[in-house]
């Protein structure tokens, strides 16, 4: 099944209707899409640890 053609502002930033790009490193083979998702998750994890959390109401205040 092919997706309906999209143009202009509705065009997807990444074309998912073509074979993906793969990285090869010895026996390791990984798609760029999977690598991007993994990097995003690690970034989100580190950001969650480091970014300050908005302070709410405290009983002792």
């Amino acid at each position: 099944m092919t997706a309906a053609p999209t143009t202009g502002a509705f065009a997807a930033p990444v074309d998912l209707n073509h074979p993906g790009h793969y990285l090869h490193w010895g026996v390791v083979q990984i798609s760029v899409a999977n690598l991007v998702v993994m990097c995003l998750m690690v970034t989100l994890f580190v950001a969650a640890l480091l970014l300050p959390f908005p302070r709410g109401r405290r009983d002792d205040e």
């Binding site: 994890f45 950001a47 969650a48 640890l49 970014l51 959390f53 908005p54 405290r58 009983d59």
Partner: peptide, 14 residues
Amino acid sequence: ETQPVYMASWIYVF
């Protein structure tokens, strides 16, 4: 109604 103060971290949101 309340949570311990150490819960004020984004890691507890997931």
